[in-house]
Amino acid sequence: MRKYLLFGLYITAVCAIIYSCQNTSEMNQAQYMTGGKDLYIANCQNCHGANGEGLGELAPPLTDTIFLTKNKEKLACFIKNGANEPMVINGKTYEGKMPDFANLHDIDIAQVIVYITNSFGNKQGMYTYQQVAIDLQKCNSAKNP
């Protein structure tokens, strides 16, 4: 009987640990989402819209989950350095120029990407500021080898 009790307690403890771990990562993402939303309103919303709907053919929508997944490691570069290449989004080509947001720090970029890729019908989970640094380095070295 005692054995069972101890075993039960052990299982509960393990479950509690796993559960609390999940909670911190969820909480982390929630923090990124809140910060990201404010940054989005301040920097992105005037062109891309409150619901990520874009603006005519001037600014593309942010609702193309496939594009966002495929180009995930380029998103940080688009934001930091701006973009001046045509992009096909939701089957339409957008040729406009996106300005750079060089003033944003890695953590800001991470938050805004988490916000965008988990709003407007997207659900792609966490993206850390450490990853931003790695992705920025990749595209900068591709640009200036």
Partner: peptide
């Protein structure tokens, strides 16, 4: 046309 601050919002609304 190259305005990135208030113009896109203005024209989104005016549209």
């Amino acid at each position: 046309t190259s305005c990135t601050t208030i113009c896109p919002t203005m024209h989104r609304n005016l549209k």
